[in-house]
Each structure stands twice: as structure tokens, then as C-alpha cells.
Design a protein around this nucleic acid. Sequence first.
DNA 1: ATTTTTGCAAAAAATTTGCACTGTT
DNA 2: AACAGTGCAAATTTTTTGCAAAAAT
Lengths: 158, 158
Amino acid sequence: MESSKNVTFEDLTKRLDKYLDKNPKLRKSDRRKYILQVIYESGKHLTPDEIYKEVRDKDDEKIGISTVYRTLSFFEDAGLVNVISIGQDTKRYEINSNTHHDHMACLRCGKIIEFRDDDIEALQKEIAKKHDFKLLDHDLTLYGICDKCKEKEAEHSS
Amino acid sequence: MESSKNVTFEDLTKRLDKYLDKNPKLRKSDRRKYILQVIYESGKHLTPDEIYKEVRDKDDEKIGISTVYRTLSFFEDAGLVNVISIGQDTKRYEINSNTHHDHMACLRCGKIIEFRDDDIEALQKEIAKKHDFKLLDHDLTLYGICDKCKEKEAEHSS
DNA sequence: ATTTTTGCAAAAAATTTGCACTGTT
DNA sequence: AACAGTGCAAATTTTTTGCAAAAAT
């Protein structure tokens, strides 16, 4: 339930269509649909390589890794996905649900928990204002140890 | 004045020495001193490649790019530097001054402005607590357009 | 029919590794 | 002398690009 499907796939498709309407040269393709679906259905934050393997294996579709990269930047331009870089890890992509959230990353098990806090958002706006900086976006990740892993560590140190 | 030398090089050297004392197998080498100095004196956020070229060109020292990578992870372990990944850019390294700060990145000119806000820090702790998450670290980057670039854009649209 | 999108292979970047040699302890 | 640290070249991994074929308009 924390798996963050705060958009339906139909919504996403609509957003994609709208973007394509605004950019008549761009086309809707199967690959683009598949890739969007894979990211959507995983409900997680995937690396380009993970997405590639998912598409290649799941449906027995032919696909090239370059298509994944190209499609991901396409989706970024379209505002359908967000990039996140958690620590030293490779870049990962998630569905941009337009309901902004930040991340909490467990350094033990790698779990990524999403959260949102309006007070923090408000403070950021204030800070930007103070610096005369036009705030367009932001990225906040908390690093630490999640409840489960904390428990485990407590057990072992008994 | 925003160029963030909130540590002296002597402090850094002391911290390095302390770390080496605690880890008797590790050694202090010229390369490590040079690299630390380069990052320190730049006062900026450098990529491994930038650091490599700096060391190679400035002093006419021989150095391999692999040494830079190895030294950077060494420094990370020692807590002397921090990694930051701004948007799509490659990873960059900065001196860990222990005076924590967050970043504001201008999407036009690439300038990185540092700031710090205790209220935000406090809120993060609260959130972590709410999720029963042991907060160890965090990363906050604001993306937008800096004052200078804003001015420029205003001029052009007259 | 035209032009975008794709897969493939090859290229370019970014990072890591093996190994003989150098430098530190 | 022992062994950690280094440069170099080669290997991996990650990302980008050129191009002919396939798919979408």
C-alpha cells in the first residue's frame, strides 16, 4: 500500500497523449507504451537496465537498451517520469505522479520509502525567495535505517 | 564569501591523520594529499575527471585516473568528502566541512549555491521519527534559476 | 509516402580491476 | 623488508550515436 500508485495507468496514457498532441512530430509507439507500463506496474524505482530486462523478458519483445535510454529521456521531457539518484547507486526512474513526494532510503536493505510534508515544501519556497532564486523543483532524500532493519539490529546486539 | 571554505586545510589534514591513526594499515601518500588539496582549493564541486586533470596539469605530477577514483572512495570512507549528484550530471565531490549544508542548483548557468536552514533540518528529524526511521544523513537540492540568470531573462523579454 | 522510432553494432564515457613497480612504514 | 598505494593498460559498466530497417502518421 505504500507502493505509490497514486495515478492510474489511464491517467498516464492521457498525459502521454496530450504531450504528443502538443508535439505533432512525436509518435506513440509500442515500445513507449511497454516501457511506461513496466515502470508503472513495478511501482518501484528502476534503473535503465532493469527496465530493459523487464521488457525483454516479460513480453517476448525485441528491444534494444538504447531504446530504453531514448525513451526515458523522452518520458522525462514529457514529464511522465522522474530521475532519482540515491546515494552511489545508478540513476533510477519512477513514474511522475504529479503528487510530489520525497524519499527515505534505507542504507541496510535498500528500501525506498516515499513521504511528503507540506511544511518542508513551504520552507523551501521561503529559502528560495530569500536568495532571490526561482524555485522550479527539488529533491530531498533522507538516508538512514528503516524500522525493520533497526529491529533486526537490536535483536543481534542482545 | 559563499565559496564555502568553512574549514581550514589544516583541519582537514588533522582529520585525515586521525583517520589514519585509527586504521593503521592505511598510509598517507602524496597523491592523497594532492587530491585533497585540489578539492579543497577549488572550493567547488568537482567531477573525478576534473580532479584528475587538475592534479595532472597543476603540479607536473604523474597520476592515473584510477588513483583519483580510489582516493575519492577512500576520502568518502574517511568522511573527508561528500558526493553530490545534481540532476543528470555526473557525480561531483566536495569537501565535507562537517558544517552541513544543502544545495541550490541553477538550471541555466549551473552555479551551485550552498545554504543551510535549521528549521528544515528539524522537520526532517520529525518526519524520520514519525516513520520510525533512524535518520543518518540527508540530501536536499533545490533546482531553479538564480538571481543573475533571472535578470538576464527579464532583459531579453523586454 | 514520408518521417519518426527502433534494434543492432559500434563508439564514447565513466568506473573498476590486475599487476608490476614505487613509496611509506 | 613487508606491504599499502600507484600508474598503466585492459576490462567492465553505463550511456550515446550512426544507420538501415520497421512502424506510425
